[in-house]
């Protein structure tokens, strides 16, 4: 059985997938997030950009508890994120993540990379897990590499496997932490194409990226962060043509082709 992508379970197409309220985080004395408020609707495609050190990666990493926080509140699918094992496990089951450095498991084949968590977390049998993994490897257009080890693949292929591994868990939200930043230029497109396909299927996506073309094409909303604060948010057509803040304009001038 190949399950259909899950969208908006229960709450209808409009409910919030992620709610972040007054979120603050410190590393020692250094405050890296300042009272961040952010609501991501189900089915929404959100792109977060900003200079390095602006807190954008830290922000999305708090959503699945890879980073802790000191003040504020996060709700994922209506569940308030605490440090309780049951809560964190439930949230992580519903939130997929793709990393800048792929983080595939080098000692497992491509297929095993996808199937392991299906068996251990979703409780699928071996054959079921392999079948579903193959389905998603086909979706990211890489089924022929299933028997290889990650080191035998190109960066673009590895990142597509990482995407397949995450979406095979059928999460309700996908987080992307600079998914193309570690790739050679010619491999960026194959990864972005997969992500566009995912967006077209209706997946809720939060993407930290510098790929402004992707933001224009896919995003419902673009957020600009600087120094731990959300400086500006707008639909892409507004964000790129009429940015309100001076800092956003300066940033866009740096990253957009002249």
């Amino acid at each position: 059985m190949i399950p259909a992508p899950q969208i908006a379970a229960g709450a209808g197409a409009g409910g919030a997938a992620i709610e972040i309220l007054k979120l603050s985080k410190w590393y020692g004395a250094l405050q890296v997030l300042h009272d961040v408020d952010l609501v991501v609707d189900r089915g929404e495609r959100l792109v977060i950009c900003g200079p390095s050190g602006s807190g954008k990666s830290t922000l999305i990493r708090t959503v699945n508890a890879l980073e802790g926080f000191q003040r504020g509140e996060i709700r994922v699918g209506g569940v308030k994120l605490t440090r309780e094992p049951a809560v964190v496990e439930a949230v992580r089951r519903n939130v997929g993540m793709v990393f800048q450095q792929f983080n595939l498991f080098p000692h497992l084949t491509v297929l095993e990379n996808c199937a392991l968590s299906l068996r251990l977390v979703r409780g699928l049998s071996g054959p079921e897990a392999r079948e579903r993994s193959m389905h998603y490897l086909t979706k990211v257009r890489i089924p022929e590499q299933a028997g290889k080890y990650p080191a035998q693949l190109s960066g673009g292929q590895q990142q597509r496997v990482a995407i397949a591994r995450a979406i095979a868990m059928q999460p309700e939200v996908m987080l992307f932490d600079e998914p193309t930043s570690a790739l050679d230029p010619e491999m960026v497109k194959e990864v972005l194409d997969v992500m566009v396909g995912l967006a077209e299927d209706g997946m809720t996506m939060v993407v930290v990226t510098h790929e402004m073309g992707f933001a224009r094409q896919v995003a419902d909303r673009v957020i600009f962060m600087d120094a731990g604060r959300i400086v500006e948010q707008a639909p892409p057509e507004v964000f790129f043509t009429r940015p309100q803040s001076e800092r956003t304009r300066a940033f866009l001038q740096q990253v957009l082709p002249h």
Partner: peptide, 25 residues
């Protein structure tokens, strides 16, 4: 660290992270 994070983000419990991901490597 990325190996721990990837395993945790997939929802693996601490025991599974150790025996399936970290120790074999």
């Amino acid at each position: 660290k990325g190996q721990w994070e990837a395993a945790r983000a997939l929802g693996l419990r601490p025991g599974a992270v150790m025996t399936r991901i970290i120790l074999p490597q």
